[in-house]
Design a protein around this nucleic acid. Structure first.
Lengths: 361, 361
DNA sequence: TCTGGCACTCGATTCTACCGAGTGCCAAGG
DNA sequence: CCTTGGCACTCGGTAGAATCGAGTGCCAGA
């Protein structure tokens, strides 16, 4: 792509006018409308000739001859990267956010669920919240609870307030007392360590206890991997409002149902250092009519989770970006607050110096 | 409504033909098509005159003069109550179900989530799973874990494998040791009792401990009430496929987002002794284009939860009913299995004799 | 280089005609 | 009395023609 650099300032202004107009009206915009836009002081004829250039360079397309122009993905990209000013939340929205994070109480899962609701309320797009993985988060408590004769539930409470659980099939019938012993040993070994690195050193006298402990140990390891595939989707009904083709709606909804896909989508986008992926930029076919806005959720400088917005490519990028950033930041702060206030060990803080989340653009 | 009783057998046959045809094709069906249907041996003229009668009585409507007929809600109702034969799952579907319940492992939340997926897979409608409330389920374990300096997390494991949790704001800074003592006292008092009726009898020597314990006690009571408002929605994208008006899709999706509404909808329907609510029969305006199929999930004869299907009024009722019933039953069995296999107390079984879930129609 | 003018395109809208599925009615036949 | 074939009629949907208008590309003149 040779022409990713700048555009003629006038072309840029025209492109900007087209994008903003189209975002507002969803109608192809013609040279006449552009000429009326603020900051443009040339006639429609001039604009027309600039538009053919813009079209040749791939920033605009005509749905059909003799219709107005519509931005391409590339056009939106240029707009987002070079033209749009940062965008701020309105006072009402800002108020909503701060009140939300003041009022919200309680427990992690609920917090995430409600955060996704907040985001989609603010923007009227569908939202996704991917919680940070628990890689570095230490265990606060582990417990084994007998459920059936040969089933036990492993419950781990992490320092960030998350509760992870997993059923364990026992190879034989284990009396409650043995479970209790195993539970105690696990608790002693796990407290203060991250999920993945729990290891009970020396064997107890009891072989049954040891068997249970080792099962639970590997289950803890599994938890670390599995935990972060639960995502929180907010306001899917907004999608139906955003698209008028019912097929598109179905395809997008179906994609949203596949949590793994969504998680890796957001992760991909973040890893490429982007905060916006437009149309086909992320390689996910069924979402080619969508734009995705992502903001990291970083806890102590470590990017763990993400919040995202999903809307039509003609979305209000500045506003969506602002909302995602603010909510992502606040959520991160909130999560860190829980972590930091811990009465005892806070190894994450010690091992990793605080670092500002690297902003982009 | 005077005319809820039976219909002329011939009228009934015609109505049945119209309904089945319309369910299949989504096109208004004319007298000619009906005449060709199996079991009808009269001419189209006769059918026409019967149809005017059916229309006068409210079972059919014409979208416009000189189009075929479409069933009304009342028409579907009659079909479901009097005409449709029970309906069975195909062998492939039956296989899917049984394999699912054999394979599914682990923990309650995941079980419910995946069950909703199963249901919507079987039927290609959107599904809802409302877990049984924990009224009668006894506590297997309770634990207090300190999170922040003045925040503790109350984690309760119930006999059915559910894990309920709630953050508690502490009025003062409580050292871990005090929490541990309180946790132990709670555990002793709660184990084997249902969530609502946990009471720690005699005070300890320590006032701080007692304060924490009483806070936790009331939190346990809250948990009982709150717990059942988390529902599991499967396959919302199916809705986009079922309706072609994008407005309808949006309205229905928006309703599905309000968990409380959905829960009370299903509850209402079940309480009225129905398993199907068609169109406006449930008073929920935005869902007037939908039919809801509900089946109870009963554990030990106690109806606690429900599974539901949400589709267009022209849904395949026999199949949907069969799927919902089977999955509801299996889910109930599954939940009871966890309960029954408990190594120690099983008070529910003792106090309530097993009773067959009363079938209807 | 910009601009106003102009011919041209082509989707959207409207109108007409027409087809055909479907109806209601009726008179004849069981 | 019920059924049936016949018949005129309705009216949505489709196809084609006419029209409208927003928008374009091009060009000559400032």
């Amino acid at each position: 792509m040779p022409d990713i650099q700048d555009l003629d300032p006038r072309k840029a202004a025209i492109l900007e006018a087209v994008v903003t107009e189209y975002i507002g009206t969803a109608q192809p915009v013609g040279s006449h409308h552009v000429a009326e836009a603020a900051g443009i002081n040339v006639s429609s004829a001039t604009i027309r000739s600039e538009m053919v250039a813009l079209e040749r360079e791939g920033y605009l397309v005509q749905p059909h001859t003799s219709a107005g122009r519509v931005p391409t993905d590339k056009g939106y990209r240029f707009f987002v990267d070079q033209l749009a000013e940062p965008g701020v939340l309105g006072p009402a929205q800002r108020h909503k956010v701060s009140r939300f994070f003041e009022q919200v109480h309680g427990e992690m899962e609920e917090l995430l669920e409600r955060t996704s609701g907040l985001l989609s309320d603010l923007t009227s797009y569908a939202s996704v919240v991917v919680p940070p993985s628990h890689d570095a988060v230490v265990v606060r408590s582990v417990q084994l609870v007998g459920l059936g004769a040969r089933v036990a539930l492993l419950v781990a409470v992490l320092a960030d307030g998350a509760v992870e659980k997993r059923a364990i099939e026992l190879p034989e019938e284990i009396p409650d007392e043995v479970l209790a012993v195993a539970s105690g040993r696990l608790q002693a070994a796990a407290q203060g360590h991250p999920l993945g690195s729990v290891h009970v050193a020396d064997p107890s006298g009891d072989a049954a206890v040891d068997r249970v402990v080792s099962l639970a140990e590997s289950a803890l390891g599994d938890l670390e991997c599995e935990a972060h595939d639960r995502i929180f989707v907010g306001g899917p009904s907004r999608l139906a409002a955003a698209f008028d083709a019912v097929d598109t709606v179905r395809a997008v909804l179906a994609t949203l149902e596949q949590q793994l896909v969504v998680v890796s989508l957001l992760r991909d986008v973040l890893e490429r250092g982007l905060s916006v992926a437009i149309g086909t930029e992320h390689g996910y076919e069924p979402l080619s009519a969508c734009a995705v806005v992502v903001a990291p959720v970083s806890v102590d400088g470590q990017v763990g989770g993400a919040v995202g917005l999903l809307g039509p490519t003609r979305m209000n990028y500045p506003q969506a970006l602002a909302a995602a950033r603010v909510v992502g930041e606040q959520l991160g702060d909130r999560l860190r607050a829980t972590l930091d206030a811990g009465p005892s060990a806070r190894p994450v803080r010690e091992t990793r110096p605080r670092r500002r989340a690297r902003g982009r653009r």
